[in-house]
């Protein structure tokens, strides 16, 4: 995963609430066995609308997306994060995110920034002017050329993973002994739990 510390650039002012992962990447694009190339299908139904923000030259290549409440709700498909990454999006700013999608985003080096609705509204205004926004993960701030400065909270583990570009699987595999101890206790006390398909 590519580390993320600071992202500066234009922001796509989407603003919509309840943007589900079927909107981010429709099901027909999920038939791939790769993580690559999904940007072609990203936001397909929205991009079919004339004058949509994604195809507006003013926001071409913008690394930041600003959305409404409950961004990424619905399906657990990680293809949504892969599609956003393929478009070059590294930060999404919204008043709230779905639990599953925000986790998927972080695991792919995309930072979900939660800010109150009025801050999001202000950033939408700035983004619509085509101005650049700066997101700093170390300082946990979002700033604009107008000297707006919003601070955001993020789970410290997620922050560390993003800053360091960490491999979570590798981190956990290093805890193999603790997991083995848990499994041994389980096998002794509740062996049926450990049988699964071998029952």
């Amino acid at each position: 995963m590519q580390p993320l510390t600071r992202v500066e650039g234009r922001a796509i002012p989407l603003g919509l609430k309840n943007v589900d992962t079927d909107i981010i990447i429709p099901a027909k694009w999920l038939k791939t066995i790769s993580r690559e190339g999904l940007g072609a299908g990203a936001f397909e139904s929205l991009r079919a609308e004339p004058g949509n923000v994604f195809d507006d030259p003013a926001y071409k290549g913008a690394p930041i997306l600003i959305a409404g409440d409950n961004y990424g709700c619905g399906s657990s498909r990680e293809h949504a994060a892969w599609a956003m990454l393929d478009l070059g999006i590294r930060v999404v700013i919204a008043p709230s995110f779905s639990d599953i999608h925000s986790g998927n985003a972080v695991k792919n080096g995309i930072l979900p920034v939660v800010l109150p609705q009025d801050a999001v509204d202000r950033l939408l205004e700035v983004a619509r002017e085509g101005l650049e926004i700066a997101v700093d993960l170390e300082a946990q701030t979002v700033t604009t050329p107008y000297q707006d400065r919003f601070t955001f909270q993020i789970d410290p583990f997620r922050r560390d993973c993003l800053l360091g570009g960490l491999d979570e699987v590798g981190l956990t595999m290093a805890r193999g002994e603790a997991i083995g101890g848990f499994e041994a206790a389980r096998t002794a006390a509740q062996p049926w739990l450990m049988r699964g398909t071998a029952a």
């Binding site: 994060a81 986790g103 695991k107």
Partner: peptide, 23 residues
């Protein structure tokens, strides 16, 4: 019981665990 992304599918296959914040 809850849904997970593909990175977490990989994590569970390799470690039979997940790193989670309590809801």
């Amino acid at each position: 019981a809850f849904g997970i992304g593909t990175s977490e599918v990989e994590h569970v296959l390799a470690t039979q665990t997940l790193l989670l914040q309590q809801s």
